[in-house]
Design a protein around this nucleic acid. Structure first.
Lengths: 135, 135
DNA sequence: CCAATTTTTGCAACTCAGTTGCAAAGTGAA
DNA sequence: TTCACTTTGCAACTGAGTTGCAAAAATTGG
């Protein structure tokens, strides 16, 4: 992906495509598993941490990324491939042996019926167990 | 619940019923919604924070409590009322308006079929939206 | 019962992810 | 160019979670 394409993606999602935002998107766009702020820092050794932080947050606010809490205590981000803006996406799997979290892209979150008065905006389905590498 | 009863619950779950553990259990046993370490500190003003922390962790290890990450960045605990030890329990709901997290006790987590090689131990289903009080 | 050992507890301090204040740099409009 | 606004880098702060350690309490063995 070249910078022009990245700029189009960003501006198409209401994000002014600044230099930092382009390099951050370039670093994360090909990642298929959830990553942390620290991961992003290591991919971008010359970019300031708080700038990366603010950029990831902006991307999440604009629904380009999805914030994920997998029980590790460290926030993770994953590329949002939801059709809708509702984030009722795919199931995540955290391996309690190696600690990695995976996107189960083909595993859709089944919907549930909420009690009266509750309105759903997003849903997160996290399974903990042993991944295929750690069996 | 008197102390004798609490001691029986704890020792029945493989926990030596010390003074701190009894008062902690006494403070949390009637709580129906997820709570934080800070909440527990406020219910137990004369008990040391790290002692409460270690006690809650012990309870969670012994499956009396359930650790829950609702995206607030602060760990929450909820009383475990799962039948099995697998923690495939009820759905949780976080209100993005008031920030509270609720146990939807009557809302069971639907199961999903995992890809080959993955083994499930626990599952967490979290819905974000607007609760009935904030509509 | 006492002494030795183990477990539990309270205190203080530390770690580190996340966050913010602020000034400098950059950008865009008039 | 000038002015206003946005973005960025730096440094410092916040606070949840965690740990080291010694004192206290409980348990075990003789």
């Amino acid at each position: 992906m070249n910078n022009k394409q990245i700029e189009n993606i960003l501006s198409g999602n209401g994000i002014h495509p600044t230099a930092v935002r382009v390099v951050v998107w370039n670093a994360i766009a090909d990642k298929h598993e959830p990553f942390t702020l620290k991961d992003a820092e290591q991919w971008l050794p010359y970019t300031d941490r708080s700038s990366i932080f603010r950029t990831l947050k902006l991307f999440a606010d604009q629904h380009l990324l999805h914030e994920l809490d997998d029980g590790s205590g460290i926030r993770k981000y994953c590329l949002c491939r939801c059709e809708s803006k509702q984030h009722i996406g795919h199931v995540h799997f955290t391996c309690t042996s190696c600690g990695k979290t995976f996107c189960l892209d083909n595993c859709h979150i089944p919907s549930v019926i909420l009690p009266k008065g509750y309105t759903q905006h997003e849903a997160e389905y996290l399974i903990k167990g042993i991944c295929s590498n750690c069996q």
